[in-house]
Design a protein around this nucleic acid. Structure first.
Lengths: 144, 144
DNA sequence: ATCTATTAGTGGGATGAAGTGGGATAGAGA
DNA sequence: TCTCTATCCCACTTCATCCCACTAATAGAT
């Protein structure tokens, strides 16, 4: 179970160290992809395989599903965790999430999200404001 | 599983180097054909055989499927990966996808797509805009 | 609480592989 | 025969990867 929020730095070589707490759970091979709301998703390979299987089944005949497979598959990158617990962020993903310098890694159950620190703070603020309404929704769903 | 996005250059001899990460999966023989949305599709021969078989089984009577078969079959070219991991792009395909200079190679599960860099960026921008709706769809399909 | 040992996060140099460009050779087609 | 181009080969540059070093933080022991 990946939880917690960490502020790390993306160095000049595009390396990003994983929080020590994540390393065991994440393993040595990961897949990073474009996520939603301007962040990146990082999955352990095992988790990714499940997602990939479903994506493979999408027919390329239809324009909208074609766009979706391209967004998620071409937007993904396999990576290895190096000896120091770091991963390499490809240029195009770095650009997609506007990563530079300070970066937030957030554990979200089975994936890690990678955010530009500013974007993250902003997003949190927005979420906190709408937390009231959300609590209501969760309550209705019987979660809280 | 072919994933990721790479920016390479098509040289004056119409050679294009495959990303190192693709080479093992792709093998030495490939088939390149006209793709959808102004790009080229590149398949490992094994994958191509499967597609060709399916195309042959299409009812020949219908004008649209006949068109599709011609589009894919007549536009196909076999090619070998050379010692440096490069393939040769035939002139008519190069023209079809407006390739020159900088070119994007995108892994989409079982095929590699070859794009003019500008066209690709534009396409991506279009897709990203519809990402919100996509989240909904992905949720419905149980992918995320 | 203080001191010490170990781990985590970060930065930089060295090495090897990947991507690119160009010359030389051989073979196909005019 | 001559020309064009596919193919092979080599050279150069850039970047990923490995390794080591330094500092800050954490945990353990006294």
């Amino acid at each position: 179970m990946l939880i917690g929020e960490y502020l790390h730095t993306l160095d000049s070589k595009k390396r990003l160290s994983l929080p020590a707490k994540f390393r065991k759970e994440v393993g040595r091979k990961v897949v990073i992809t474009r996520g939603l709301d301007q962040c990146l998703f990082m999955f352990p390979v095992a988790t990714w395989r499940g997602i990939a299987e479903k994506l493979e089944k999408l027919p390329f005949g239809q324009a909208d599903t074609r766009g979706m497979s391209r967004f998620l598959l071409a937007g993904a990158a396999e990576g290895e965790v190096d000896g120091a617990g770091r991963i390499l962020i490809p240029e195009f993903l770095k650009e997609f999430a506007s990563l530079k310098g300070r970066v937030v890694l957030a554990g979200v159950s089975d994936r890690v999200e990678i955010w530009n620190d500013k974007t993250w703070e902003e997003y949190k603020r927005r979420i906190e404001k709408s937390a009231e309404g959300m609590a209501q929704t969760l309550g209705d769903m019987g979660i809280l």
